[in-house]
Amino acid sequence: MHTSHRRPGRAWIITPGLRPERFTTAQNCGAGVAVVDIEDSVARADKQTARTTAEEFFAQPDPPCALGIRINSPLTLDGAKDLVALATYTARPDMIVVPKVESPRDIELVAGVLDGDGYTPDIWALIESPRAFDNLPAITAAPRLGGVIFGSADYAATVRCGTGWDALHFARSALINAATTANIPVIDAPTWELDNPDALRRDAERAKELGFYGKGCVHPRHTGVINDVFTPSEAEIAHARSIVAAAEASGDGVTSVDGQMVGSPFFTRARKLVADVDGTP
């Protein structure tokens, strides 16, 4: 059984831990979650500087979005140092993004070090290796896991496949299936084309259709498109409310709404959307 977690944002932006001049922009670009990175964007020689600099990311007294940090794998020396540093931060992250997760023990280790009186950060796992996909049921069942994020670049590099939609379709579908079984949300990987809003919108729409809750990005201008795609439209919300009303009127029996036959699976989906919009459990 998963513990209760804050509802994540739809657009997640990640910004390098060594670039403090970008911190304010990342936090105010419209993303629901802003993550400072001290893993892949930081060379090993600069890791300690990044740990120190990243603390500034959480110093803002009233941030406009949830704030997270991507640490190094807790199974590495740098990851161990990250956890020690985080335990001493004056301002603490809302979320810890754990890379290279291949076992539920990775999640337990982070929670064991950081959980304390009045502080239990949401812990999110980056799923980015074939071994992780082999162990998905165990990973997604970890009690302290808040959600999972698809790490497309690392996965594709390991498999030696392309980063296009077709090449990664199986991995995305497998991740959605396992996370849904565990009742946790999934965030898609960023679209790496910085100056192609059409490609970004197409990828976001595909991800939403597959069942992703939101999508990561590496540039502030991407957040608007992601929010637009993943935030339910007024028409979608109204249609879902119509289906919920029809379900109640029919006693959850098969009925029709706007000329479409609807039954139990449609009722379940509509109720989930309405509950999400209304902020009810």
Results as ranks from 00 to 15, higher is better:
residue 85 A to M: 03
residue 200 L to W: 11
residue 74 P to G: 01
residue 231 T to A: 08
residue 141 A to C: 06
residue 98 V to Y: 00
residue 195 D to K: 07
residue 124 W to Y: 12
residue 146 G to P: 11
residue 2 H to L: 08
residue 148 V to Q: 00
residue 187 I to A: 10
residue 138 A to V: 03
residue 223 T to E: 15
residue 88 T to Y: 10
residue 141 A to Q: 10
residue 78 D to I: 00
residue 163 T to Y: 03
residue 87 A to S: 12
residue 281 P to L: 13
residue 255 T to N: 12
residue 124 W to I: 08
residue 220 P to T: 01
residue 217 C to F: 01
residue 28 N to T: 15
residue 233 S to A: 07
residue 86 L to V: 03
residue 74 P to Y: 02
residue 280 T to Y: 06
residue 40 D to G: 00
residue 55 E to C: 05
residue 95 M to Y: 10
residue 63 P to G: 06
residue 143 P to W: 02
residue 281 P to D: 13
residue 177 N to Q: 15
residue 96 I to W: 05
residue 135 N to R: 14
residue 124 W to D: 04
residue 280 T to Q: 11
residue 256 S to W: 03
residue 82 D to I: 01
residue 50 A to M: 04
residue 31 A to P: 09
residue 175 L to F: 05
residue 167 A to F: 00
residue 112 G to Y: 05
residue 1 M to H: 11
residue 143 P to D: 09
residue 178 A to D: 13
residue 238 A to C: 00
residue 203 D to K: 00
residue 128 E to I: 05
residue 138 A to M: 05
residue 146 G to N: 11
residue 211 G to W: 03
residue 110 V to E: 00
residue 188 D to N: 11
residue 236 E to I: 06
residue 264 S to Y: 15
residue 263 G to F: 10
residue 246 A to C: 15
residue 249 A to N: 12
residue 28 N to L: 12
residue 180 T to L: 09
residue 202 R to W: 13
residue 56 E to C: 11
residue 266 F to R: 14
residue 202 R to Y: 12
residue 270 A to G: 10
residue 247 A to G: 13
residue 118 G to C: 07
residue 27 Q to T: 02
residue 135 N to S: 14
residue 255 T to S: 08
residue 262 V to G: 14
residue 136 L to E: 05
residue 262 V to D: 12
residue 227 N to W: 06
residue 158 T to K: 04
residue 164 G to K: 05
residue 29 C to L: 06
residue 83 L to A: 04
residue 112 G to P: 10
residue 118 G to R: 12
residue 81 K to Y: 15
residue 36 V to T: 06
residue 125 A to T: 02
residue 91 A to F: 15
residue 191 T to K: 12
residue 78 D to W: 03
residue 104 P to A: 01
residue 183 N to S: 13
residue 8 P to K: 01
residue 14 I to P: 14
residue 186 V to H: 08
residue 91 A to I: 12
residue 199 A to N: 05
residue 204 A to D: 08
residue 2 H to K: 06
residue 236 E to P: 09
